[in-house]
Design a binder for these strands. Structure first.
Lengths: 234, 234
DNA sequence: AAAACCTCTCGCACAGTGTGCGAGATTGGT
DNA sequence: ACCAATCTCGCACACTGTGCGAGAGGTTTT
């Protein structure tokens, strides 16, 4: 009888009654606040105000703020599209999935700060894993290799998008302001001639950074998929 | 004349005088505190106490707490080993690099929460990029492909390690306590029979989760490298 | 020697945080 | 009408980052 990891998902939720607030309502408001003001903008008092209640009322439905974040976190994973692999074939299925995952994460930038802090144990996260696994099994992977392939793919998406979020947020809500970004980069990279040269090359070839990042993402994605396919053939 | 992205690296540091504290001293104390108590354990007052000074003294050397984190952040990237590619060949070089990066990150788990919040513009981060690029250039990549390969590789490492950190920290400093982890997982995954089946399979084949994660990391790494190599041949 | 001027320290205060507690309101069952 | 369970929330506590302005200490100029 060892003690569980502390998480919302290891405690039974309070049975839902008709009167009063509900967990769903609270999570919905949490998501709105997170999307509107980011992780720092979420406070129990603001959330209470949005719900038309006292701040500490929330603690009746949720043990603490982290549990609230776990709930919001898992909700996001539910928004990722994963086509039925039997119809599209595994490569297109995974590709679609990866792009959808990226889009969803960029739309809810605050998840970037949660991935390193909260384990993803919610039903949506698990269901995502489950369906992803089926796609990889259909591709021909067996046993633990299914999990390894799964981990590699999601790792690539996470690792790409998380720094993207950092950039996006450090440019602070403003319009892209590409020129100032280049200026900044020129300044900090002044001691690295090769990096500077690369920067001007990028300037020549690529018009805006959004498509650059998307191209880079696609490049890495096919790289990973090619690597996985190589495994299947050996 | 557009305004810069706000960052320590875009401001000239205060010229160093002999008396009083120094930036290096403060960063060192910051790192100690971060390693000892994590990101939440770092507060200006605690840091001041450790330095034997008032909390607000720090603001003479640093604009705000985020700048302090940027400095500590960049310091970590300086600890990653990157062999000389001409000696080892690019694959071994990158492999060594990736493992070193993972080890360093796991040793300073708080970086996991910073990757999604602060852009990596410090000299160590840039120097890492620079040297990585050289390795990929030596491998045979050209032009933007060098950056894409670079991005793909670091994305994979980031994306693997960041969730690892989440697990590590959610088990709260305690010894691994594998049994309770399995118990937790069995509980949350109770509605996903395939996942449960996979879990027992893992239990049979793998003794401890540390080596499991390491195997998984190595699997994904060779996957990415294989994918990159496939690009080179086409 | 005196005055002016930097460089640096830090106590105080402010607005804000998560959340424990306990008193009260609201509800449903008898 | 009474009781017990369920739910709300004001207050308080310890804590956060940081703006401000008074002062200390040292160096340079007059």
């Amino acid at each position: 009888m060892s003690k569980q990891i502390s998480s919302v998902w290891t405690r039974e939720p309070r049975p839902a009654r008709t009167p009063g607030r509900s967990r769903e309502e609270i999570v919905r408001a949490t998501l709105e606040l997170l999307d509107a003001e980011g992780l720092d903008g979420l406070s129990m008092r603001k959330l209470g105000a949005r719900l038309g209640s006292g701040a500490t009322t929330i603690y009746w439905y949720v043990e603490n703020k982290d549990e609230l974040l776990e709930l919001a976190y898992d909700h996001v994973w539910g928004q990722i599209a994963l086509p039925v692999p039997e119809e599209l074939g595994w490569r297109d299925t995974i590709t679609t999935f990866a792009h959808s995952m990226r889009r969803v994460m960029l739309f809810h930038p605050w998840v970037g700060s949660l991935i390193g802090r909260l384990p993803a144990l919610g039903p949506n996260a698990l269901s995502m894993s489950d369906r992803l696994r089926k796609a990889f099994a259909l591709a021909g992977f067996e046993g633990l290799d299914i999990d390894y392939a799964n981990a590699a793919l999601t790792a690539y998406v996470f690792g790409t998008v998380i720094p993207e979020i950092a950039w996006q947020s450090s440019m602070g809500g403003e319009e892209l302001d590409q020129e100032s970004m280049k200026e900044t980069f020129r300044h900090v990279a002044r001691d690295f001639p090769d990096l500077l040269e690369r920067l001007t090359e990028i300037n020549d070839k690529v018009s805006d950074t959004d498509t650059l990042r998307e191209t880079s993402f696609a490049f890495g994605l096919t790289t990973v998929l090619d690597g996985l396919e190589a495994r299947l053939r050996s």
